[in-house]
Write a protein that binds this DNA or RNA. Sequence first.
DNA 1: ACATAATCTGGACTCGTGTCCAGTACCAGT
DNA 2: ACTGGTACTGGACACGAGTCCAGATTATGT
Lengths: 198, 198
Amino acid sequence: MSSTSVQQLDLAPRRHLSARQSQTLDRLVQAAVEEVAATGYSSLTVRNVAKRAGVASGTAYTYFASKEHLVSEVYLRRFTAQAEPAFDPNRSPAERATDALLAFALTVSDETELAAAVTVAMLADNPEVRDLRVQIGLEVRRRLTNALGDDVDPIAVRTLELATAGALLQVGTGHLAYGDVAPILRETADLVLGETRR
Amino acid sequence: MSSTSVQQLDLAPRRHLSARQSQTLDRLVQAAVEEVAATGYSSLTVRNVAKRAGVASGTAYTYFASKEHLVSEVYLRRFTAQAEPAFDPNRSPAERATDALLAFALTVSDETELAAAVTVAMLADNPEVRDLRVQIGLEVRRRLTNALGDDVDPIAVRTLELATAGALLQVGTGHLAYGDVAPILRETADLVLGETRR
DNA sequence: ACATAATCTGGACTCGTGTCCAGTACCAGT
DNA sequence: ACTGGTACTGGACACGAGTCCAGATTATGT
């Protein structure tokens, strides 16, 4: 008889990928971006992404628990790939804060379809996506407090975080244009951090 | 031969419902709420909602273009049903603003599953949902400016709107508890409207 | 009471998601 | 060159979304 495969029991951990595995994973993420760019979000299917990456669809689900997980991973990779601007004492706190937040809010915003995809995907309620959300949230806070120093009003920090999330949402839903994000965040930072108040 | 039904060619307009129609519609919306409460969002299906409402699934799609549209409608109804608090000159602007925004942010937040459902549904990219979003956005702005008067910094208004959307998001994803929303919005309003600054 | 239109039923159909798994190809190390 | 695990294939499967439509049911006017 036969009893070959025992195979992937490791859906959960997903640590320590072999060279071959991380290559497959990279190809999937890359293919997802291309697929969104090529066909838009509404017609994005895991099967097409897998095909584009040259793997079987079952394999894709070895790496990603859901379509949303895949798209969220795209976002995470882009975001963390953005270099954190060095602390520049010559710039005002509001300027530094804006710079830090723009990395978050504009990571994918110049690719409209991708922005929409990410916005929806990141809200999925499966545990893998939740982890990515937490991870991103922590990184945003780290960069923001890093840009502002230690003696900042925590309420101001939270307001900035909330407003940035709101802005990202508006971009994702198409209610706010890419180019408007930077000035808006700048004005918000000015207001919240107490500069140019009257 | 036969050539009875010409039937619903009116998927788009959806105005001027007959008594019978609006009754069916009400039952669907009501059933959706019950279904979420009973089985959670992940297992919410249009078919089950239809069954609970006592209509065929095809009929449900006569009234709603998508599952997200249905859930968004639940939100819209609840939100607009909340009475707008009368303008009270004895309360501070921040207090009035907070009251106005709470109606928006807390409309469904005490039903955890429903909040999650609404958060995701309202981001769907189909035109019906987009209309609801716009409608809600306008109503929020109206109530907010109504609460604050005409001579308020528009940047402050926008910051409040963005932060409130961010808060709603956090509630929907479970990163923020129902009870924390009110104090957080209050602190944000205080900061943004320039009260208790140091 | 009867035609006629509006509304709903019930079920078939397409397509994508996510799961599962027997079999195959690709690696080590020995 | 062989062995044993590791990664992938390819396709079947259950199930929900959304569409469609012939026919039944229900209202409405006359």
